[in-house]
Amino acid sequence: MDLTIIAGAIMLSFAAIAGAFGNAWVFGRYLEGIARQPEVRGMLFTQTFIGIALVEALPIIAVAFGIMAVLGIIG
């Protein structure tokens, strides 16, 4: 099997795992915060939005590069 495909698959899987853990952590804290103090949900929403954007920007790029590697476009 071509090593590029394995590299792409590893890149995809690690990006997905890292993104999932980061998202779950940010999202979990958001829900806990809303359940505890519903009156600050606007501020929590904004911070959660920024947090998920920060967490997810790099894994999305890594997923794109991983798919390109699997398809043989790069590498």
Binding site: Y30, L31, I34, F45, T48, F49
Partner: peptide, 10 residues
Amino acid sequence: KVRLAGETTL
């Protein structure tokens, strides 16, 4: 998704 999750939790 974030909005729906917040509303569900509320």
